[in-house]
């Protein structure tokens, strides 16, 4: 079974396209895309064990790092560049997003939402760095060094010149479409998936200038 957030990403991908999965793990998404959509997929993955598993599955995967290795990819070489549940662990998220938007005609980024009410409540009530089901690390040993909220991410995407085509809220009960002008998801969603591009097509709605406070 594909993880629900990966299944939601897979739904966004057209058949027979070229896809780069950055932080592809054991290749579950790439394998699924290859089998069900005839996708020509490539991956980048940090862990040697995971890369070996991918190679053994016949998936082309490079051992590498989103922070350092994306710069070597040619522009617009892929139909879709995916970064799932990884951006919060990169050293320079803005630069990584910039590269993804350059490499892919479309870019999909998913991440845990630090604006979720459980996170907020945990900090408010306990006065300690929040630990939740989705982000279960002590502050001193977490790989998640650049956590953000949905609104934070949208701001960074705007600054990178991205047009948001579609956004999904991730929760225990599956995914839900995020409306362009909705405030709720930043409080209620455990995570989010954004489909973007930098060519200006298929705009999902204005994302700049919102003054919501949720």
């Amino acid at each position: 079974m594909l993880r629900p957030d990966l299944a939601a990403i897979a739904e966004m991908i057209e058949p027979n396209t070229r896809v780069l999965d950055v932080g592809c793990g054991d290749g579950a998404l790439l394998e699924h895309l290859k089998q069900t959509r005839g996708v020509d997929g490539r991956g980048i993955e940090l862990s040697q064990q995971n890369v070996n598993q991918c190679v053994a599955r016949g998936l082309p995967v490079l051992q590498g790092d989103a922070d350092t290795d994306l710069a070597d990819y040619p522009s617009q070489a892929f139909d879709v560049a995916i970064l799932s549940q990884t951006i919060q662990a990169t050293r320079a998220p803005a630069k990584v997003l910039e590269n993804l938007l350059r490499i892919g005609r479309h870019t999909i980024v998913s991440f845990p939402n630090f604006g979720h009410w459980r996170v907020r409540l945990s900090l408010l009530a306990k006065g300690r760095m929040p630990r939740t089901h989705a982000l279960d690390y002590a502050w001193y040993d977490t790989p998640n060094i650049h956590l953000c909220t949905i609104r934070d991410f949208m701001q960074m995407a705007t600054q990178a010149g991205a047009t948001i085509e579609k956004a999904l809220a991730l929760g225990a009960n599956g995914t839900k479409l995020i409306q362009a002008d909705a405030f709720g998801p930043n409080l209620m969603a455990e995570g989010a998936i954004f489909l973007m591009n930098r060519r200006g097509g298929g705009a999902w709605g204005p994302i700049a200038g919102r003054a919501g406070s949720s």
Binding site: R18, R42, Q48, V51, N52, C54, V55, L59, P60, V61, L62, Q63, G64, D72, Y73, P74, A77
Partner: peptide, 16 residues
């Protein structure tokens, strides 16, 4: 690997 990437070739790379 980078040169192969630049041609969008099908490439895997493992450092052991």
């Amino acid at each position: 690997a980078h040169a192969l990437n630049a041609t969008a070739a099908n490439v895997s790379f493992v450092e052991i």
